[in-house]
Simulated scan of single mutants.
Amino acid sequence: MGWPSGYGRRVLAEVDSTNAEAARLAPGLVGPEWILGLRQTAARGRRGRGWVMPAGNFAATLVVRLDEPPDRVALRSFVAALALYDGLEAVTGTAAGLALKWPNDVLMNHGKVAGILLEGLGQGALAVGIGVNLVAAPEAAEVESGAVLPVSVLAETGVRVTPEALLEALAVAWASHEERLVTYGFGPIREAWLARAARLGEEITARTGRETLTGTFETVDEAGRLVLKTPKGRVAIAAADVFF
């Protein structure tokens, strides 16, 4: 497979969180860098939620510096999701059961196997944090009510994957999709993401913090927004938690 040219890599036996480490390292980095934490002591998910990480699971952050508007930078959540999909297919030998859940989760057999967290670090630096349940998943009681239940790669496929093996597959896939985004724009990334989307054409619920909207998941638009067909018309949503 081979490590992608131009990307740094560091593997840490223990860290508070790979996104926190990314923030500390970002000012001194001259190129994109992957940071893998084999143990995290203060992991976080979206909206500041805790992220449970048993030993053997995957936690990594890519630090990249991008001279782009914020809305363009945010499209890296789609790049990360596609890279995770391809990476998991590479290390397990199958894409069966894999699907992408807007805005930034990866599903396996209808359960959440991975999550993505993007954080701006200032001075054009972006942290792309990725957590994957390789060998164990949190208990149902540990997740938000109504959320997709967590699953692990090992339980769903019977394949035991090391964090280091997934990192290499993920880094290769990221480099490929990132090059496609830079070269051809969001169009091909959007099409690839929609081809792997969970519940496309079905009824879903989106909670934005201000309101809850239920409608048919029609598409993701050219800005990466979720488009719902609701009784009040079509609505484009920039940020929300999605429930099935």
Rank of each mutant, 00 (worst) to 15 (best):
I204P: 01
I35R: 03
S145T: 10
V220H: 00
R9Y: 08
V182S: 11
G48H: 10
R207I: 02
L213F: 00
G48E: 13
G158R: 11
G48S: 09
G185H: 10
H177I: 11
G45Q: 11
G87V: 03
L29S: 05
L213Y: 01
W3R: 05
P4N: 04
S5R: 12
E33W: 11
W3D: 07
V11Q: 09
K101C: 09
K112T: 05
V63F: 02
T92V: 09
F243M: 02
A197Y: 06
R160K: 14
T230W: 01
A114F: 00
L36R: 04
E156D: 15
D67C: 10
G187A: 15
A127L: 12
A192Y: 01
L100P: 00
E68K: 14
M108S: 05
A23V: 09
G8E: 13
P32S: 12
P54S: 13
G2Q: 13
E33N: 04
Y7K: 02
Y7W: 12
L194H: 06
D71G: 05
N104L: 01
L154H: 15
R210N: 07
P150E: 07
V106M: 03
G115H: 07
T208C: 05
A96P: 00
Q40A: 08
G124N: 10
G131Y: 13
V73Q: 14
L200V: 09
E156V: 14
I204T: 00
T183K: 14
K229M: 03
L75T: 14
L166F: 09
P150Q: 11
L100T: 03
P150R: 03
L62Q: 08
E164K: 04
L117D: 02
P163D: 07
W34S: 05
N19M: 13
W174I: 08
G124A: 11
A165V: 13
R160I: 04
G6N: 01
E203Q: 03
A236I: 07
R24E: 14
L200A: 09
